[in-house]
Amino acid sequence: MEHSKTPFNVRMRRFYRVSLEGSINRLLVYLLFGILLVVAIYPLIWVFVNSFKTDIQLFDQSWALPKVWRYQNYQAAWNYGIARYILNSVIVTTISVVLVLGISMLAAYGLARFRFKGDTFLLFFILGGLMLAPEVSLIPLFRILSGLGLYNTYWAMILPNVAYGIPFTTFLIRSYMLGLPRDFEEAATIDGASIMGIFRHVVIPLCRPILASAALLEAMRVWNEFMFGLTFITSEKLKTIPVGLMAFSGALREQYTVIMAGIIISAVPMIVLFLATQRQFIRGLAAGGLRG
């Protein structure tokens, strides 16, 4: 009712000024975001397109689409060792994620549902790992793993990865458990269920959403882990994708387009996983807030 008192022409002028400003702003924002979109995505598209060319074509016209799509580059990359690296990454990632989730779930249950002597200390003991840079422990880890005879085995990657994965995953699951109502657990206790029975049949099913998110975040972290793989593995046969790709590109030096095919093969699993599971992914990030 208020605005009906202002004369019609003033109202129209205001309307136009606001909407003109609004649309210029909107245009600028879309322009900025459009440019950023190109910056974010084009490097990968450039690699993808050029991975189908010959090296000569790459040097001549790296902007153009390939005249003939050479799938041979992919075959060459695959046979050159990428296949083996992928297998190793799958093995290391699977075992690490299973161990991190299993161990963290038990610890989170203990910390979220029991009061006991030293509980605060143990909570800080586990979460304190978030603050430590893996670089600091690199040299002693090298000695420990050598001493245990685990140097240059899958376990040399798995065990440090698990140790550095536990703090965040435990934190994530514990926070989620604290937010769950205790009614089901109490009912089960009255019905005479054992502690571990309740854990298996009540708590785990309720925690499924956060377990999915935690598994995804962990899988991505371990799949992309570089430093432990670089330091504790010498055998080509055991290298994971991130480390193997470096050896691969070093060995192929001048065959750029085959290297590009190798890059694309290595990137695809994570891109697909991310696009397929965005929602669980973001939920994990939201629940964890931040990680180091």
Binding site: W223, M270, I271
Partner: peptide, 8 residues
């Protein structure tokens, strides 16, 4: 998207 890619 770039943040899901391996550092190599």
């Amino acid at each position: 998207l770039p943040s899901v890619l391996a550092v190599t």
